[in-house]
Design a protein around this nucleic acid. Sequence first.
DNA 1: ATACAATCGGGACGCTCGTTCCGTTTAGCA
DNA 2: TGCTAAACGGAACGAGCGTCCCGATTGTAT
Lengths: 185, 185
Amino acid sequence: MTEKDRPLRADAARNRARVLRVAYETFAEEGGGVPIDEIARRAGVGAGTIYRHFPTKESLFQAIVADRLRQVVERARDQAATDPGEGLYAFLFHLAEQGATDLGLTEAFAGTGFDLATSLPEAEREFTTLMADLLAQAQRAGTVRPDVDVDDVKTLIVGLQAMRRFRGEQADRVYPLIRAGLTRR
Amino acid sequence: MTEKDRPLRADAARNRARVLRVAYETFAEEGGGVPIDEIARRAGVGAGTIYRHFPTKESLFQAIVADRLRQVVERARDQAATDPGEGLYAFLFHLAEQGATDLGLTEAFAGTGFDLATSLPEAEREFTTLMADLLAQAQRAGTVRPDVDVDDVKTLIVGLQAMRRFRGEQADRVYPLIRAGLTRR
DNA sequence: ATACAATCGGGACGCTCGTTCCGTTTAGCA
DNA sequence: TGCTAAACGGAACGAGCGTCCCGATTGTAT
């Protein structure tokens, strides 16, 4: 659903890809607050070029968050197959790490000026399903206490990302505490 | 250190107090992002009047955060005297609740466009001391495991405030998990 | 090689917001 | 009551940013 209709002209396709790549890096480093002009500058194109491909700054941001989510989901599914009991923890802490280097993703989860469920409903649904699977699997394996639910996991994600983002490596020390809290007594 | 030199004229004193009160409420509701004009409007004064009393928006914000911190610290000391083992938990969860209604305070802890340690060094020091006291006390009482340190507590505060702020009452369900994680096995 | 349409770059526009300025109003005092 | 300095309100200014527009450029089909 990105390159239908008639094919883009060669230069247009090149620029589109370039913008996407640069925007990805830039949002990750600076968060959703970066000026479009900054992305344009880094990509070596004019602001007008960005607007030809993405009608709005918001839409560019969405495109990137959606892609990022896909990656995270895919990775988590792999991990989960490898070690059922650890899947949820790996997912949780991986997401926290991502939050450290990807401000865009953090904002998407926290809902800061960007509502995931509204903007990318399918991605949100897939994400929720993944969490439910990982959680059920971990509970079956006995590594997570049975009274924890999916909403609790979402809440923890928000908290963990905030810790990682604002407290850096200090957050590493807290992971074991969280894990202990989630484990059956 | 607020009303030295020659006393303010009656109307000036009234306006200053009014601005402080309104700014307090407004920052709490909207966070540090609210326009000064909005605060001025709510207070029924002109923007110029605010700038007569506070040289900068930042300085107004600081004045209010400092006051808020004083209240929190005072309350925590009272609590701690009542129940040594619970002092740290009460403090932690109270702070999380505060984060829900006081965006300004959350931003101060997270360091979002406002560095507490740099802007209000004394307040920051007092705060750190309080945490160290509460923590040591709880560890002595045996309600917190001995390998937790003050930096871990700071990290948890950031996480808990984020949870409360972005996930609302969902966060309540996570408090027991955090507590379980902090408790000696 | 030529022509035409797609695409480009970056200046212009409009809006928001922090801060300043200044003509007007008012408290405090004699 | 009248005078003066303090204080007021809100218009004005400048900077930042999202978005739009348009003359210049370039890919592509013939």
